[in-house]
């Protein structure tokens, strides 16, 4: 049982790695790399959020707040105080984790929609602060962010680099970097899920009362996951800021939070590969619909609505169940 579980986990990771390796073969201009890199950034963010929403069963409608805090910490520190990007984003993540820990304790006692409300309020307060403190954040018009420099190299999508004797473009380098981050993110998340903590977590999703009866310290675990998912968001927010080169408070806004949750739910709550799929879909859909101009908004809403109505468990789990059913039927037919 344990062995099959580990094998399953590794095969999932391997599948993901293969997909990430193969995607560049289908990309034929830097813009598409841009989009692919954004998909990876959002995917890693929602892999973290999925721990909270999918496994611990807690609604968060303010997660972009953490994303925005990470982004702005990196932006402000590297541009106004000349801090080095990599240590800055790590320190930023630690600080955001601390904030999540402090906020999480009272907030996570709330249940269901009330938790949704409290996280929404928290996200809004972060957004409003970023908007209002223009002397530091540039206000609603945002602020430019220096490029990501690693060991003195500035990673820009307009440069090319030689790496192990190969010429690679900056776009490709960013793509690989974020690909590695996603695999790392998934690996850490899966380890957490399969650990004793993870089992406790899933019991929280099942029934909190039952979990505490059998001796699981539910508040502690919920808070831990809240902190972990906030750290994911903060790190990705920082990288997003460096990648985009510009950041506005909207990246911490309510709509962004909703988009994050939608990525999780659309892809399939509790399915790591599923939420990655959800992130890809929601990042690319606006680009695909852009040519419909006036009809874009209507189509986006319709697609969102129909997918959730007909696949309430999310795209990937529903598809998996469908395939499994087909295979099962085939096997039956043969017998």
């Amino acid at each position: 049982m344990l062995k099959s579980l580990t094998q399953h986990r590794l095969s999932g990771l391997a599948l993901l790695a293969i997909i990430i390796l193969l995607v560049p073969a289908f990309l034929n201009n830097p813009f598409q790399y841009d989009m692919a890199t954004l998909v990876l950034i959002y995917a890693t963010t929602v892999v973290g959020l999925n721990l909270l929403v999918g496994y611990a069963g807690q609604i968060s409608l303010g997660h972009a707040g953490f994303f925005g805090m990470g982004a702005y910490f990196s932006a402000v520190m590297t541009s106004r105080f000349d801090w080095s990007p990599v240590p800055t984003l790590i320190l930023g993540a630690a600080l955001v984790g601390l904030v999540a820990y402090i906020v999480g304790r009272p907030i996570l006692r709330l249940k269901g929609y009330y938790l949704g409300m409290a996280t929404l309020a928290m996200g809004f307060i972060i957004y409003i602060t970023l908007n209002n403190e223009g002397w530091l954040t540039g206000g609603p018009d945002g602020m430019p962010v220096p490029g990501l420099s690693i060991f003195g190299w500035e990673l820009s999508t307009f440069n090319t680099y030689s790496f192990l004797g190969m010429e690679i473009s900056g776009s490709l380098a960013w793509y690989w970097l974020m690909g590695v981050m996603l695999i790392l993110g998934v690996w850490i998340a899966q380890n957490l899920i399969d650990s004793p903590i993870g089992r406790a977590l899933r019991s929280v999703h099942g029934s909190e009362v039952a979990a505490s009866v059998v001796g699981v310290d539910t508040p502690k675990f919920k808070n831990l996951v809240f902190v972990v998912s906030a750290i994911y968001a903060s790190l990705m927010g920082s990288l997003y800021a460096h990648f985009q080169g510009f950041i506005t408070p909207e990246s911490a806004g309510f709509m962004e939070s909703i988009i994050f949750v939608t990525m999780v739910v659309l892809g399939g709550m509790g399915s790591t590969l599923g939420v990655i799929f959800g992130a890809a879909l929601l990042t690319l859909l606006p680009q695909l619909l852009a040519d419909f101009h006036d009809y874009e908004m209507m189509m986006f809403g319709l697609i969102l609505m129909l997918t959730m109505i007909f696949m309430p468990k999310g795209l990937l789990p529903t598809t998996q169940a469908f395939i499994r059913k087909k295979l099962h039927k085939k096997a039956e037919d043969k017998a």
Partner: peptide
């Protein structure tokens, strides 16, 4: 259409130039 959203604007600018 960037919908008044700055990161959309940045992504569409990327699409336009790249």
């Amino acid at each position: 259409d960037d919908e008044g959203n700055a990161s959309n604007a940045r992504n569409y600018a990327s699409r336009l130039v790249r």
